[in-house]
Design a protein around this nucleic acid. Structure first.
Lengths: 246, 246
DNA sequence: CCAAAAGTGTTGAGTATACACCCATGA
DNA sequence: TCATGGGTGTATACTCAACACTTTTGG
């Protein structure tokens, strides 16, 4: 790839000069290029179900449609940095688990301009930690993954990719730690696996498998609930190493 | 993500106006944005070894360095389309297997400008099919994956990601078909698995496993070589379905 | 004492791996 | 005839999935 070489030889294109984006008129000598954005599918557990966070667009051709929070990448900024900035803007969350998933570049995905979107997946331990209002969007809301509304852009596809990535990571990595508070019970952990993988798992086999991975640490107390008290666990500091399951 | 809303409110940045890219000066009212490029790691088998195709950069701060072929995405063009165009330009290849791998966006990855690069992996059945000279690059060359030279940009990292993706696909999908001619022997197929996974595989177990997947079709003839003639196989039309291995 | 969740153990099926032997060809 | 890769079979270890029983609490 060579920027300096291509920059001059490329023909100017007019095809993206429709819509609202043309409010900004490039200089005659400027070559028009696709823009870069990031969009993040944020997941959390709530009521033993996997949910994801959506906002309602406020402007543009798709105003009032639901979408994942995101925005344009600025010059000098990393992609991860842009995703974190947008998540903090939209939901007031910092230092969360973030992972790049896929890039969407269909020129017609955004009716306002040609925008290449780098999609991210993010995980937080408590849905309640997300601020629902923001400067940029009217209101955020948590939706059950199985019952998402119609989404703007290609975000329905994005949701599928992000979920697929989450499932894959759950099978081979200790990613579940990012969906849990510091301490939890074996039942809490199994809820994650069951709702993300969308299938029942035998309680006893799950327990045995999870303990043999040696990722968990048994803590002294018990959690008291409606029935027999449950052992409290925490994830060990770090294993960094992938492992296998199921 | 909302373009119309952000477009005006974003501050202009000067940080990327060093280097050769500043030959193109944006208009005063134009907002400077990161550019989007695609870069493709092209793989093929040669002498029972996995190789990948590199070109030498001709201009810019990294001229004469080796890199994967790629270039800027044009407005109105899909990412896949841009990758295919660049591969055809660089190596004269069309209708090849192509898969998006990862996007790299570190602002300092290209000393000439802030360029976000969407990385692709491509596979072809014959290394010899690639044209080595091109309009854009001096000469292409096939390198053993285990012995790559120093690469420009973050392309060493790209190579790692692409290889990791290839390994993963080999385990669960019939992606090997894209590295093989229409007909081949069990030995040819095993060469791919061994060189991509970088480990020896028991010949008899490999054969049994591969045949139970039911992806192969036994063809009538035999391939005669230095020793006992080998059965000729072809991949069945399409299974589309993922499967598991090892 | 009963319902419901937590904790512990066993067993059989299916899969993966290691390995032995014979076959067909060119040199 | 021998070196080399091709073709077929078998024994064993291991993992996975199905399932039974007991324990501990709250109501």
């Amino acid at each position: 790839m060579n920027i300096a070489e291509e920059e001059e030889s490329l023909p100017k294109r007019e095809s993206d000069h429709g819509g609202e984006a043309s409010a900004v008129v490039p200089h005659e000598t400027e070559v028009v290029r696709p823009k870069v954005a990031v969009d993040t599918a944020l997941f959390a557990m709530e009521d033993a179900r996997l949910k994801c966070y959506l906002v309602q667009l406020q402007a543009g051709a798709l105003a009032s449609k639901w979408a994942f929070p995101g925005g344009l990448v600025r010059v000098g900024e990393t992609l991860d940095g842009a995703a974190r900035r947008e998540i903090e803007d939209a939901a007031g969350l910092r230092d969360i688990y973030l992972e790049q998933v896929f890039s969407f570049g269909d020129p017609s995905r955004d009716p306002d301009a040609h925008v290449v979107s780098v999609a991210y997946m993010a995980l937080i331990p408590e849905a309640g930690a997300a601020r629902l209002g923001s400067r940029k969007y009217a209101d955020g809301q948590w939706f059950e993954v199985a019952r998402l509304p119609a989404l703007a852009y290609d975000h329905t596809e994005l949701a599928g990719y992000a979920l697929q990535r989450l499932r894959s990571r759950l099978r081979y990595m200790d990613i579940a730690r990012n969906l849990l508070p510091p301490t939890f019970t074996m039942g809490d952990l199994q809820d994650i696996y069951q709702s993300v993988l969308e299938r029942g798992i035998d309680r006893r086999n799950f327990r045995r498998w999870m303990l043999t991975t040696d990722l968990l640490e048994r803590l002294p107390g018990k959690r008291r609930g409606a029935h027999r008290p449950a052992t409290i666990y925490a994830f060990r500091k770090r294993n960094e190493e992938a492992f296998r399951m199921l």
